[in-house]
Amino acid sequence: MRPSPLLKRTPLSLALCTLFAGTAQAADFKIGIELPRLDVAEYHRPYVAAWIEREDRTVAANLAVWYQLKRANAPAAAQMPAAGGAAPAGAAEGGTKWLPDMRQWWRRTGREMTMPADGISSATRAAGVHELNFSSGKAPFPDLAPGQYKLMVEAAREEGGRELLEIPFTWPAAKAAQLKAQGSRELGALSLDIKP
């Protein structure tokens, strides 16, 4: 993720950080998702979803969905497929066709969402480590009730595989902590930094 110019450590923002450090109203929730560089003949960027699950597996928050947004070069005619199915498969959906491939996410929450989802969905991302910063009470991160949760991250890649990682955590955190999980195929390292 490219840092926004507003978040650059100017003296002013440093001062603000110092100012708020003592009060810390909003707990921080920082996720690091590594998409491994894969040496394959035909590489497509993976679809990735991140969400928070309660102990009963219901979804407490949808944090991110990266998928293939509407193709810029999709012909207009293809957006309304004829009944005969003449339109090329996939052209009309702007990539939503493959969202069910993130099976757990689709089952738990994706199939009830409308895409694009404001503040949650965005384009697919390149290999590398992507940081996502959230603070409690600020959309899309809700004011979580105290309890046990799991951070869930699922990736699915065209002509590739699927992988689901989870990091259990307690909310609110008693102290700052870094939690980790390691993927083996479609995901690399997953980290979660929680600050009370």
Partner: peptide, 8 residues
Amino acid sequence: TVLSVGQW
């Protein structure tokens, strides 16, 4: 058997 709306 598990798809998004509009699929065939």
